[in-house]
């Protein structure tokens, strides 16, 4: 056994050689942060003192986070954005995919398809600029319309009623084309013979959609939903961080944005790390759940 181990390693020395540096990368950039995460259990003041010199405080940081008045607010917002986005984006993506698939006008189809994928590649900074052109308080299309209707202009980005809707719908606008790709692929995989048979039997277009097209994308919807379970805690940091402002912290703050402000702006490293770990543990449980369920109900799994 031992000899064969040495032989194996010798035989594949070039493979070990080529994965060596990437594994060093993992050790430095993934495992040292894991080690650093112990500051969640310490009263860590600054990088200069070092981690091990900071006093150990047990679960104090976690207690402070969980019992604070903002805790439930953060959880509520995180879940609100996660589920809100899913509820809007998923039907939007399915409708887009169906429309693209059923459309007989090839120019219109190509145009919509191209425009639908494009926003996925734009950053949230660019998206913020685009949203300003639509929703800016003084200028911008929507307020222009409101004014022409004799109504008062609304600052959608700093109004705590409109802000969540803006977050959810701007995300749907940006990502619906991208999310539709997987549905379009499923539709393209439908056997043409099914449609031919349906036409011979005299099925109408509606019946074809109802009995052939929709059933074809149902398994994909299941996969997407199962994968989504794993990322419920990620409500869209880059987006919300770019769009929010102190006026809407109350409805905008998710765990990630709060961790940033506490940890890196206010210097409460221990508390922020505790919140990050809290999120990390829940995220891990969700990923395992998602993976377990998709292994059970579909053939897909991450690991």
């Amino acid at each position: 056994m031992k000899r064969s181990l040495i032989n194996d390693i010798k035989r594949q020395k070039y493979i070990y050689l080529m994965i060596f540096i990437p594994l060093v990368f993992y050790t430095v950039f993934k495992y040292i942060p894991l080690w650093n995460a112990q500051i969640a259990f310490r009263n860590f003041k600054s990088v200069r003192y070092g981690i091990l010199n900071s006093p150990f405080v047990g679960l104090d940081n976690f207690k402070e986070f969980v019992t604070s008045y903002y805790f439930w607010n953060l959880i509520r917002n995180t879940l609100m954005y996660s589920f809100g986005k899913l509820l809007v984006s998923l039907p939007a993506a399915i409708i887009l995919a169906l429309a693209i698939y059923e459309c007989r006008r090839s120019v219109l189809r190509k145009l919509v398809q191209t425009l639908a994928y494009l926003p996925h590649f734009l950053s949230w900074v660019i998206m913020y600029g685009i949203l300003l052109s639509l929703f800016a308080p003084g200028d911008g299309i929507i307020n222009d319309l409101l004014k022409s209707l004799g109504k008062k202009p609304i600052d959608f980005l700093t109004n705590s009623t409109t802000f969540p809707w803006l977050v959810i719908f701007s995300d749907a606008w940006k990502e619906m084309g991208w999310s539709a790709i997987i549905f379009i692929a499923a539709l393209m995989g439908i056997d043409v013979a099914l449609f031919e048979a349906a036409m011979v039997e005299g099925a109408s277009s509606w019946q074809r959609v109802r009995y052939i097209t929709l059933p074809a994308i149902r398994p994909v919807v299941v996969i997407v939903l199962l994968l989504k379970i794993g990322t419920i805690m990620d409500a869209g940091f880059n987006q919300i961080f770019m769009l929010y402002s102190p006026a809407v912290y109350n409805v905008a703050d998710i765990i990630d944005t709060w961790v940033y402000r506490q940890g890196l702006l206010d210097g409460r490293f221990g508390l922020a790390t505790a919140a990050g770990l809290f999120k990390g543990v829940i995220g891990m449980i969700l990923i395992f759940t998602s993976n377990f369920l998709s292994k059970k109900y579909t053939d897909n799994s991450l690991f």
């Binding site: 950039f29 993934k30 995460a37 490293f269 922020a272 995220g283």
Partner: peptide, 21 residues
């Protein structure tokens, strides 16, 4: 090795520990 690589992917420790690094 695959487990070694996947653990940090599944367990995300957040922003502060990486910033300190």
């Amino acid at each position: 090795i695959i487990i070694f690589v996947i653990i940090p992917y599944i367990f995300n420790v957040g922003l502060v520990p990486i910033y300190i690094l």
